[in-house]
Computed example of a mutant assay.
Amino acid sequence: MARLPPVAWLQAFEAAGRTLSFTRAGEELAVTQSAISQRIRMLEARLGQDLFIRHARSLTLTEAGRAWLPSVQDAFDRLAHGTAEVFGPEPDAPVTIRATPAIQQFWLAPRLQSFHRQQPETPLRVVTGVWADDFIGEDVDLEIRYGAGDWPHLVQQSLGTDALTPVCAPALAATLTAPSALTGHTLLHTAGFTVGWPDWLDAAGLSEMPARHLWCDTQSMTLRLAAQGCGIALAHRGLVGDPQILVAPFELACPARQQFVLTRPERRSLRPPAERFWNHLLATID
């Protein structure tokens, strides 16, 4: 394998090729325009081909330069992603946790508030993730996922087993004296859950019950509609919070086949503030 040119030369080429300016490349890399020009000349000498056509007041890439630039940029991108995967965000970056909107609103918010009261000097950042993804490409320290826990290369801590039960607005709940009272009401479904209304109705002996149906692809939307009196959602008990917003009118609940799991990359050590937040979340589990 041919020996690679020095990284400083490659940085100069990438910046100059992207900006088509030795001056702007120098400003970006905090060196002089002449330093960029010298590095490019040495790189061209090493490669045995010109990378730029020098005009009086501008630059253009040669055919070889245009062909090589994407490879150099891809190499720097892969290096940045690999560094983030192993070492995580910058030491002084906010502690970042990713979760679905429903988990953020009904489970994470009060725990984040209590942590912030205890350690107000620790910057926190919450980002949204609807479907499970990896940790590459984002400065994410922790993530709460929902599933069976079949995620390789992640440290995983269950947030406890859960069950699903009907929830609705308090005024509507006052009229539901028994499960059979759901007849004719709108049932709010969340797409993608392995346990849903058919399971709960079957457990209640109401599998043939006539009802209206409305489907959403996020649980946060079904819970929002339920809070507005639009119907009855099937929700995890762990996400039922303020009784002034949502009420569970029945005791009957179906065990969930999946669970909420706090995760982090296996290859990456947590920064001290992220580790404190991780431990704080685990301490709140009943």
Rank of each mutant, 00 (worst) to 15 (best):
G160T: 03
C230I: 15
E208I: 04
W151D: 15
L262A: 10
W197M: 06
A171N: 08
H153G: 12
A233M: 03
A248R: 08
H185M: 08
P273S: 10
G149N: 03
G184A: 10
W215P: 01
P170L: 04
S269G: 08
G184K: 11
V261G: 04
S207G: 11
D150I: 05
D217S: 15
L214C: 14
G241S: 14
L252S: 05
Q258K: 08
A211E: 03
Q157D: 15
P255L: 07
A226W: 02
F193K: 02
D199A: 06
L270I: 12
A169P: 01
S220F: 15
I232C: 12
E208A: 14
S269W: 15
A163C: 08
T222R: 10
F277Q: 01
D199F: 00
A274Y: 05
A178R: 02
G160Y: 01
G238P: 00
P179Q: 10
A178I: 00
W151P: 10
L214E: 13
L206I: 04
T190I: 06
D199H: 07
L225M: 15
A253F: 03
G229Y: 02
I245D: 14
A204M: 09
G229Q: 07
H236I: 05
L164H: 04
A148L: 14
A181V: 05
A211F: 14
L206C: 09
P243I: 15
L182G: 00
T190P: 02
T165M: 09
L270A: 14
W197P: 02
L246D: 08
D162S: 09
Q219F: 00
Q156F: 00
H185D: 02
P166F: 10
L201R: 01
L164Q: 06
T218R: 13
A248V: 13
A211Y: 14
L188I: 12
R267N: 11
Q258M: 10
R271C: 06
A191F: 00
R212G: 12
L214S: 12
A173C: 07
V155F: 02
S180C: 03
L172P: 02
F260A: 07
A169T: 10
T186P: 07
Q244L: 09
L154T: 14
A227V: 05
C216V: 11
P198D: 07
L176E: 09
G160C: 01
E275L: 12
L234K: 01
A248P: 08
L246A: 11
Q219P: 03
G184T: 09
V195H: 03
L201M: 02
A274C: 06
C230Q: 15
